[in-house]
Simulated scan of single mutants.
Amino acid sequence: MRKSRQLSAKQMACLAVIVATGILVAVTCPSTRNWEPIGVPSMEPFSSSPGDTPYLTFPSVSSTTGTATTPFSFSVVYTNVDNTAPVYMYIYIDGQGYPMSQQDPADLQYLDGCVFMYITTLRPGCHWYSFSVCVGTTFFSTPIYYAPLVQDEPPTLTYCAVSPTAGDAGTTFTYSVMYTDLEGAEPVYVQAWINGQEYSMTKQDPLDMNFRDGCIYYVHVMTLSNGSCSYYFKMSDGYHVVTSETSRGPNLLASLTSGSVTPTSGNYTTLFTFEVTYVHKLDVPPMYVQVW
């Protein structure tokens, strides 16, 4: 049974007539007009009926879930009882058409079916797809299939480092980390946490906007507290908060500890004594010691 459908402006311009035939939708256009696939996949399923000359079967996608790096393989079997080759085969993903390739280009026996494929990665979100084929001047399309679901993958922090790895109170230390996001999202912030204190980090190359292959962030710090030092990095892309493992360093060769003043109170005639313990791991004497 044929079903009439509301035509879009583009279809009306092409004088298209949409006819439900089996599981397909046929759109017939004038042979005198150069036209492209209209891309109007059926919004409702159709039951298969005998007598269709060309038809599409076994529509599928290799995985119904994945991430932005997952290669999704879409495939469909094209069969034609007249052994007529298609003018072209398209897959429509979220309404955008892409040409498909025949799995075996040497297979010209369309009587028993030929597989057409298209492989791509997809952005995070819920997607839909349908298949379309042009045979002669007639365009056929499958119903819409809702898949795959592509999940957002958290960014990563790698190559966490501090340079130099040793120094003293006058040394400038550079903390750096590589931020990578496979979806290409720019971070909302990248921070270095050093001995419990937060430092905002700067992108090494301001012009580098390719976060898929990684961008280096850094911060320079001169004054570090005495004793054992530790640090970690923290970032957010607006959806995920990622924290690196805590690392030890740098190695402070010189340290000042046990600072004190005696007495702890007095008046303007009181003599106050300030003391501090200076330690250098290589027994290097200080150039000066000051009290502020």
Score class of each variant (00 low, 15 high):
P105T: 11
A20R: 13
F46N: 01
T32C: 02
D52V: 07
P86F: 00
Y78N: 09
P45R: 11
V76D: 03
Q6R: 13
Q103C: 04
I91F: 07
A13P: 10
T84H: 14
T57E: 10
P124Y: 09
P54N: 03
P41Q: 11
Q109N: 11
D104W: 05
Y90K: 10
A20M: 13
T28I: 01
P54C: 01
S4L: 08
S75C: 04
G39F: 09
S4G: 08
F58N: 15
S101I: 06
D94K: 02
V17L: 01
A16T: 06
Y88P: 14
I93H: 05
T69V: 12
G66M: 05
L56S: 07
S101R: 04
F46M: 12
Q103N: 11
L7P: 15
A13G: 12
E44A: 00
P54Y: 12
M100K: 08
C29R: 06
D52A: 00
T65H: 07
G95D: 14
I18T: 11
G113A: 03
P86D: 10
A106E: 15
P41I: 03
V27K: 12
F46R: 12
Q103D: 15
S31Y: 08
G97T: 06
W35C: 05
L15M: 09
Q11F: 14
E36C: 04
E44Y: 06
Y118K: 05
Y118W: 12
T21L: 06
Q102D: 11
A106S: 13
